[in-house]
Structure formats: structure tokens, C-alpha cells
């Protein structure tokens, strides 16, 4: 009882701190915090697939891009309403994830990783080549942030970063909450059953492939949400979003932060972005620096940051999962 109270108190404090960011810090930090939240949404959804179900996808950049381009195209041709745009982005990502997932979920392990990678790169090349729709390698530019209209009348401008920040924060909190509920739901329990022993899950009467496909689509939708928000943040959608090196980011931050907890991928994402900023401050060669850090992390701490922290305090993760 008290433990859960402490947890709520910590969560409330964190939320307050996040809400206070635009008031107490400079523009750049506000921007970086938004980037951390976007990567957090991306990775938390991704970890439903990797940490919860045990499937490693290397193609989630495709769904991220589907979200971004979905929002961009909808905004340009239908209406710039950002809430509808985000919804369309999520839907577009889910549809692409359904198509890709249908092909891929028969496989597991490395075969699944390769297939998702290949499918993701197909989306990349489509985005790159279909200039007339996507703007090709220049990206889809000029996405605007129209005000949000709520309950018919209330208009909330999100044009400035300090305003848009709360738009992102709202979705971030929503996404983390949904991911949390999925992890402790019956659906989530079945997913961890699939991770632990797929064959036995079939003998529990579970259509394993359908569950795999469902969680693939769900995590694709999270990626689409992150992509749509990034399109609004940067006012463009770029082919790079679908590139496999971008698909590697959620894998990376999930492993960095730890697979077995809800917040692991978010911590990993914050670490990733902070490190990129720090390395870039000193050298142009941030990829080299990051590669070296990654080597060290993999060779030295395999449980990720959260795992290391948990080991330090000698307690098991409180969340569902392993």
C-alpha cells in the first residue's frame, strides 16, 4: 500500500517536473525534452514487441515514417487539424504495420528481424522514389501546426514550441499509460507467455500468430504517433525516418535502458539524446563516439541502465514481465 503510494508520488513529481520544463528552462532544453518524449513513445511501444513478446523488429522506422507522412499528406490535402492528423498518422502506421506484420509474424528471432528490416527498407525506397507524393529525398516540407480545437469552441494554439510542448506531453503521458496498462493486462500476460514459451502458449489455446500480429500493429501505431508528432515538431517528414538506422534507435534505447521495465526504454532514450548532444558538442564524429559507448554498454552491462540501477539497489523490477 505504502509502496504504491510512494510510486504515485514519484510519478506525480516527475509529471510536475516535466510540465514545468517550458517555464524554467531555455528553448533548446524544451526542444530536447520533446525529442526525448518522442523517442520515448517510439521505444515504449517498440518494447511491447521486444521486451514483452520477445520479437526483435528492425523495421519500425517504416511505421514512424507512415505516421509522419500520413499526418503531412492529410494536413496538406484534407485539413490541418492536428488532432485528426495525428489520428490519421496512427491509422496509416497501423495499416502499414498490418501489411508488413502479416508477412513477418510467421517467423521469429533472426528471421523476423531480417524480414522486418527488408520490409522497412522497401518503405524507405518507396518514400525516396515516389517524389510526386512524398517529395523524395527533400522530404515532405511545410507541415504546419494549426491550433487544436477542443469541444467545438476551445482553440489552443500550438504554434510556439512552448505551446506545442504540452501537446507532446499529453500524448506522451497517454502513450506511457496505455503501454503500462497493456503490460499488466490479460493481453500483456499472454504476450509474455509467448515470449517465455510460444509452443506452450499454443497449448493454452492461444492463436499465437494473431497475438504477434496484434502487438506488432499496436507497436507500429505507437511508432506512427511518434512520427506524426515529429512531423509537427520539425514541420517536415523525411525519408530517413524509414531508414533502418532509424529503426535501430528503439532497439538501441530499449537495450540501453533495459527491456524488462516500462520506463527502461524512456531512460535509454533520454540517455541516448543527452549523449548525442554532449558528444556533438565536442566532436563532429558523434557516430564514432556513440558506437564506442554502445560497444562498452553491450560488452559490460547487459541488463541496460535500469538493470544496472536495479542490481545496485538489489531489487527486482516491479513491473510485469520477467
Amino acid at each position: 500500500m505504502t509502496e504504491s503510494r510512494i510510486r504515485y508520488a514519484v510519478l506525480a513529481a516527475l509529471l510536475l517536473a516535466l510540465a514545468a520544463v517550458p517555464y524554467v528552462s531555455g528553448k533548446f532544453f524544451v526542444y530536447l525534452t520533446m525529442r526525448v518524449m518522442l523517442l520515448g513513445i517510439f521505444a515504449v511501444g517498440f518494447n511491447l514487441l521486444l521486451g514483452q513478446t520477445g520479437l526483435l523488429s528492425f523495421g519500425h522506422g517504416a511505421f514512424y515514417a507512415a505516421g509522419a507522412y500520413g499526418l503531412g499528406l492529410f494536413g496538406a490535402y484534407v485539413t490541418p487539424n492536428p488532432l485528426l492528423g495525428v489520428a490519421v498518422g496512427i491509422a496509416a502506421a497501423a495499416v502499414v504495420a498490418l501489411l508488413v506484420g502479416y508477412l513477418c509474424v510467421r517467423h521469429t528471432e533472426i528471421y523476423f528481424a531480417m524480414l522486418t528490416l527488408a520490409c522497412g527498407m522497401m518503405v524507405f525506397s518507396f518514400v525516396w522514389n515516389a517524389r510526386s507524393i512524398t517529395g523524395g529525398d527533400d522530404g515532405f516540407i511545410g507541415i504546419m501546426r494549426a491550433p487544436v480545437t477542443l469541444f467545438g469552441g476551445l482553440r489552443l494554439p500550438i504554434g510556439k514550441d512552448s505551446q506545442f510542448y504540452y501537446f507532446v506531453l499529453a500524448f506522451f503521458v497517454l502513450a506511457v499509460w496505455v503501454a503500462h496498462r497493456i503490460r499488466i493486462s490479460p493481453f500483456g500476460l499472454v504476450l509474455s507467455g509467448i515470449r517465455e514459451n510460444a509452443r506452450r502458449t499454443e497449448y493454452a489455446g492461444i492463436p499465437v500468430r494473431k497475438y504477434r500480429l496484434s502487438v506488432f500493429v499496436v507497436s507500429g501505431a505507437f511508432a506512427g504517433l511518434a512520427g506524426a508528432l515529429e512531423a509537427l515538431l520539425e514541420s517536415n517528414a523525411r525519408p530517413f525516418m524509414a531508414h533502418w538506422t532509424h529503426s535501430a534507435e528503439p532497439v538501441l534505447v530499449s537495450l540501453l535502458g533495459g527491456l524488462s521495465s516500462l520506463f527502461g526504454p524512456i531512460v535509454g532514450g533520454a540517455f541516448f539524446i543527452a549523449m548525442r548532444e554532449i558528444i556533438q558538442r565536442y566532436t563532429e564524429n558523434w557516430m564514432l563516439g556513440f558506437g564506442v559507448v554502445l560497444l562498452v554498454v553491450i560488452m559490460a552491462f547487459r541488463g541496460g541502465i535500469m538493470g544496472a540501477v536495479e542490481n545496485l539497489f538489489g531489487r527486482r523490477s516491479a513491473g510485469a514481465g520477467r
Binding site: L56, V251, L255, M287, G291, L294, I298, M299, R302
Partner: peptide
């Protein structure tokens, strides 16, 4: 972890 290790070498 294996895939990410080789990915780290791509970056490097």
C-alpha cells in the same frame, strides 16, 4: 545484443 554489437561497428 549481437545485432547491436555489429551495428555499433557500422557506426564506428
Amino acid at each position: 545484443y549481437q545485432l547491436l554489437l555489429t551495428f555499433a561497428f557500422v557506426l564506428i
